[in-house]
Simulated scan of single mutants.
Amino acid sequence: MRNSNHVIGLLNFSTFLLSIPILGGGIWLSTRANNTDCLKFLQWPLIVIGVSIMTVSLAGFAGACYRNTFLMRLYLFVMFFIIAALIGFIIFAYAVTDKGSGRHVLNRAYSEYYLQDYSGWLKDRVADESYWSKISSCIRDSKACGKMGRTFGGVPETADMFYLRKLNPIESGCCKPPTECGYVYANETFWNPGGGMVGSNLDCSKWSNEQDQLCYSCDSCKAGVLASLKKSWRKVSVINIVVLIILVIFYVIGYAAFRNNRRMDNDEPFGEARMTKARPSRIQL
C-alpha cells in the first residue's frame, strides 16, 4: 500500500512539473503579443490547461500522501478530460496553421507574405477589423519596425545590404511595401515611389512613409502576423506533444497504482480469485 502511494505521489509531482512548460508556452505566446490586449485568444487555452494540470496534480499529490480516495478519484477523473482537451488543442493548432507560407522574391533574401495564401478560422480572426485594430496597435507599440535600422561604421545600410537581410514575417509584411509595388529604397522604413509601380496589389496604395502608419493596414501585414503565429504555435505544439505523451504514460501508471490501492484496501491478495465455491461439485457418472 505504501509503495503504491509513493508511486502515485511521485507521478503527481512529476505531472505538476510537466504543467510548467505548458503554462510557460502560454505565457511565451502572450509575450509575442507584446503584453497587450491583442491575441489573448491565442494563449488563454494553453494557460488554462497548464493551470488545470498544476492544480489537479497538487490534488492528486495530496490524495496520495494522505490516502484520500476522493482526491485520487477527482485527479483521475479531471486529468482524463485535461488530456482530452490538450489533444484537442494540439489538433486545433495544427489545423488552423496548416496553410500559408512566405513567397520567395527574386534577388531578395527575405520572403513576402500574401493574405490570400492563408485560409480558415485563424485568418478570419486576425483579418477581422475589431481584432486587427488591436493587433496592429500591438505591432506599432512594440516598435518592431523602428528597430530595423542598421548602421555600419556610422553609415546606414544600403539597399543591396537590406535586400540580403532575412526579415521576420512582421518586418517583411508590416514595415516595408511589397516588392511588386516598385518603391525605391531610401532606408528600412522609408521608400520612395518608383516609376515602375504596379497597381494590381491594393497594398501599394496603403503604404505610407509616416512612421505610425507604414503598412500596418496592409494585407501583407496581416499575412505576416499569420506567418509569425504559425511559427510560434508550431513550436509550442511540439512541446505539448511531448508533454502529452508523458502525461498519458503517467496517467496509465497512476490509474494502475490506484486500482492496486483499492485491491489492497479490500484485502484482495494479488492473483487470488474473489469468489470460490463452498464445496466441490460431485461428478455424476
Results as ranks from 00 to 15, higher is better:
M1R: 07
R2L: 00
N3S: 04
V7M: 07
I8S: 14
I8M: 14
L10E: 00
L10T: 15
L11Y: 01
N12R: 07
F13P: 02
S14L: 12
S14K: 02
S14W: 03
F16A: 02
L17T: 06
I22Q: 14
G26D: 13
L29H: 12
S30D: 14
R32W: 01
D37I: 07
W44M: 12
I49E: 06
G50N: 05
V51H: 03
T55F: 02
S57C: 04
L58P: 02
A59I: 13
A59R: 06
F61G: 04
A62I: 15
L71W: 09
Y75C: 07
L76K: 06
F77A: 13
V78K: 01
F81R: 02
I83A: 11
L86M: 15
I87P: 03
F89C: 11
I90M: 13
I91V: 12
I91Q: 06
I91Y: 13
F92H: 14
F92N: 07
A95N: 11
D98P: 01
S101Q: 15
S101M: 12
H104W: 05
L106E: 06
L106H: 11
A109E: 08
E112K: 04
Y113H: 12
L115W: 03
D117P: 04
Y118N: 11
W121A: 12
L122E: 11
R125W: 11
R125C: 01
V126Q: 03
D128V: 00
E129M: 04
S130V: 06
S130L: 05
Y131R: 01
S133N: 04
K134V: 00
S136G: 00
C138K: 01
R140K: 09
S142L: 09
K143R: 10
A144D: 03
G146T: 03
K147M: 11
G149W: 03
R150E: 08
R150Q: 10
T151H: 05
G153A: 13
V155L: 14
P156C: 06
A159R: 15
A159I: 04
M161R: 14
M161Y: 08
M161D: 08
Y163D: 15
K166E: 14
K166I: 01
C175E: 05
K176A: 10
P177E: 11
P178Y: 07
G182P: 00
G182Q: 07
Y183M: 06
T189N: 09
F190R: 04
F190W: 01
W191S: 06
G194L: 07
G195P: 01
V198G: 04
S200E: 02
N201R: 10
D203W: 08
C204A: 05
C204K: 04
Y216I: 03
S217T: 08
D219I: 00
K222N: 00
A223E: 08
A227H: 05
S228Y: 01
S228V: 00
S228C: 00
K231A: 14
V236S: 11
S237I: 04
I239E: 03
I239Q: 09
I241P: 03
V243G: 07
L244Q: 12
L247K: 15
I249Y: 10
Y251F: 14
I253K: 02
N260D: 11
N260F: 01
N261K: 15
F270K: 05
M275D: 10
A278F: 09
P280F: 02
S281E: 05
S281R: 13
R282K: 12
I283K: 15
I283Y: 15
L285H: 14
